[in-house]
Write a protein that binds this DNA or RNA. Sequence first.
DNA 1: TATCGTCTTGGTCATTCGCCCAAGTCGATC
DNA 2: GATCGACTTGGGCGAATGACCAAGACGATA
Lengths: 202, 202
Amino acid sequence: MSSPTSADRGRAVRARLLTAARELIGEIGWSAVSTRNLAQRAGVRAGLVHYHFESLPALLRQATIEGMRTTLDESAAWLSRADDPADGIEGLLTGLDRYAADDPESLLFVEAYLAATRDPVLHSQMAELMLAFRRDVAAVLDRAGHPAAEPTAAVVLAALDGFMLHKGLDPGLSAGTIAPVLRQLAAGTGRPGAATTEGEQG
Amino acid sequence: MSSPTSADRGRAVRARLLTAARELIGEIGWSAVSTRNLAQRAGVRAGLVHYHFESLPALLRQATIEGMRTTLDESAAWLSRADDPADGIEGLLTGLDRYAADDPESLLFVEAYLAATRDPVLHSQMAELMLAFRRDVAAVLDRAGHPAAEPTAAVVLAALDGFMLHKGLDPGLSAGTIAPVLRQLAAGTGRPGAATTEGEQG
DNA sequence: TATCGTCTTGGTCATTCGCCCAAGTCGATC
DNA sequence: GATCGACTTGGGCGAATGACCAAGACGATA
């Protein structure tokens, strides 16, 4: 009685293709994803790609946006759940740290940034997502009384993405190394009480 | 007489190919650079690529490493020339800001990070370069009495690369926005005198 | 049972890819 | 003037690419 056959199988194939796209983008790079290796990863025939999706770029766009939305929604939820903004940001950082080296999903974001440079449609969709997330981070900082919430949020997000980039080159770069600096940033300027930098950096 | 013909023309062709490679990597992406569009950009026949270079990836590697070395050397020189580390870092930032939107050369770095993820040779060469530069930045911070030079240097460099990434999505993100935050970072923790954040952020 | 819509198959199309090579140009050297 | 070596030309190789399509499969509907 798991009856739904035609339409449901189609839905499953679409989902498998989107998941495979997210994996492959991180593993081999955005423009190296082809209809054939994508179909192989998803376990379907290559002809299905152009039946279920308008084009290969359209598929990659949709997979990317869905993946980013999921990750950013979870991150925003985690952030607003933390007592202290610094705790929330450090949580984001360590979450990033845990699966950055192994899982290529983290590279999906960077690949998407670059792809957005050359794809106007992807660009506008990603810009909307990222602006909303940055607003969330700024709001959390502002609510905690941070004197410069907006620019600090911009720097923190830039540092997080850049951390992902640099971590690939230098395995010695871990979340623990830069967490104190990010905490200091999240704490604001003249608040010595939140300065965890003293005593245990390195 | 500008006589040197054979060997000298070859040298010129190699240089043109390397320059064209740096341009194209930023414009269309690392894996989209082909022997043919590369040769066309350099104003050279496609067959020359494999005469002057072992392979296309080898050419891209060499072009990338040379470009990065030049940029990093200039940046390090600029940094050590500044009186205050904060001034030096802000100089790096504004230099990055000026030609980030137009010139695709800024994307070369990000493309290289991703390519290094999949190319062990490029990986080791880039790692050496970036580690040396981060050491330079940390040394400048340390010399100015910064209490946490190493991790701060890591965060600053990550923020700079991340800034390049985010700037492509949000044109409203300019160097002026995040410069105060980076200054604060460069100034260290408990030094209110260097806190330029007050009064004019945004 | 017959028809319909949705999905799937297997293959083809023109194009582009990295790489290779025989033949040629041309100044330098003897 | 002959020879040499560095460089250049133009074409060609098999393989991979994105896109497309006629034909079939199969449960749902009538």
